[in-house]
């Protein structure tokens, strides 16, 4: 089987799930990495080191900023001439969009957020979550190529072999953009909770500490800084419930759940989060869930492996200290 893997990046910063997709593609046979953008030599080099047999580079200043139409048309052209059996993408806002468009061009379909692949004869069967993961479906795509996106951390990341090289092929971009990029503002240091191995998450409870004598916003700021310390110590990221995002305590990029991001870290620590279903669907596939909540009846405890009934403003700093000691930091 010949698989294209689209290496997704933002301003040349690669989404790690791209490498996971590459590893998966290798297990199916020949793997061709696609790198779109401008000044992408480093990405192409990394693609070889992660195991790509071939790298197709479409390097054009017009592709420097992601835009749906030229990315879709460039992919359509490559897929038409090379006829891969499968095109894999890491699931991101960008890939969902331009893969969707290219599928229209190629008369095929996209299987999104695939958790597992298996072969049934020569047909690829994908398992994916529907109804917010309450049900799973096995689906097949009768079009060719089959297109599929995989969520971060669902498949193992391949070993990187420094210095490994291969055949690089340059290809032409199809520039038919219908939009103009005016600018970009980073929401702080580009959080990507989807890739984090550890997430320390805060909810409305993070604004509740009367002892500080501060207003809600200031309390939440202190509270999230405290969660940030624990997250940093554990090499992780900070997540949030929607109540915390709506309260303006932290930006939307951190939101976990139905209208935020679905995450599956190795460790998820929920602090001052009640455990509404819309939050749980975003984090319940985490390997280990720890919940800290004042209320012994909070539904979040039904999802957790370890629970602490208590004030997060007392428990979280104590946990940071304890972890520091035990981890020798």
């Amino acid at each position: 089987m010949k698989t294209f893997v689209y290496i997704d990046h933002f301003k040349n910063d690669v989404q790690p799930a791209s490498w996971e997709a590459l590893g998966l593609a290798k297990s199916f046979g020949t793997c061709v990495a696609l790198v779109f953008g401008s000044d992408t030599d480093e990405i192409a080099k990394a693609a070889f080191e992660y195991g790509a047999d071939e790298v197709v580079i479409v390097d054009d200043p017009a592709l420097a900023d992601y835009r749906a139409e030229p990315y879709a048309s460039t992919l359509t052209a490559l897929a038409t001439s090379a006829a891969p059996d499968l095109i894999l993408f890491p699931t991101t806002a960008r890939t969902r969009e331009f893969a969707a468009m290219s599928a229209v061009d190629l008369n095929t379909g996209v299987l999104t957020d695939v958790a597992k692949f298996e072969m049934n004869g020569d047909q690829l069967v994908a398992t994916r979550p529907i109804y917010e993961g309450k049900v799973l479906e096995k689906t097949v795509c009768s079009g060719k190529p089959v297109m599929a996106t995989i969520p971060a951390r669902a498949f193992p990341k391949p070993e990187r072999v420094a210095g490994k090289a291969g055949t690089a092929i340059k290809a032409e971009a199809k520039i038919d953009a219908l939009t103009t990029v005016q600018g970009y503002a980073a929401t702080e240091s580009a959080v990507n909770i989807g890739d984090a191995a550890v997430i320390v998450s805060g909810g409305r409870g993070v604004s509740n500490n009367p002892a500080l004598g501060l207003d809600e916003a200031e309390t939440a700021k202190k509270g999230f800084a405290m969660l940030g310390e624990l997250a940093a110590l554990l090499g992780g990221a900070v997540g949030a419930s929607r109540a915390a995002v709506d309260g303006g305590y932290i930006t939307y990029a951190h939101q976990v759940g139905q209208t935020g991001k679905v995450v599956a870290p190795d460790l998820y620590i929920a602090c001052g989060i009640s455990g509404a279903i819309q939050h749980l669907v975003g984090m319940r596939n985490s390997k280990l869930i720890v919940a800290i909540n004042k209320d012994a009846d909070a539904p979040v405890f039904n999802q957790a492996r370890y629970g602490v009934v208590g004030d997060l403003f007392a428990i979280v700093p104590a946990l940071t200290e304890a972890m520091k000691k035990k981890m020798g930091k």
């Binding site: 005016q182 989807g194 939307y252 990029a253």
Partner: peptide, 16 residues
């Protein structure tokens, strides 16, 4: 002209 909310931040994009 819209602000797109993506993983990495806000991107301002316009179209006809």
């Amino acid at each position: 002209t819209v602000d797109r909310i993506t993983e990495e931040g806000r991107q301002t994009v316009s179209a006809k």
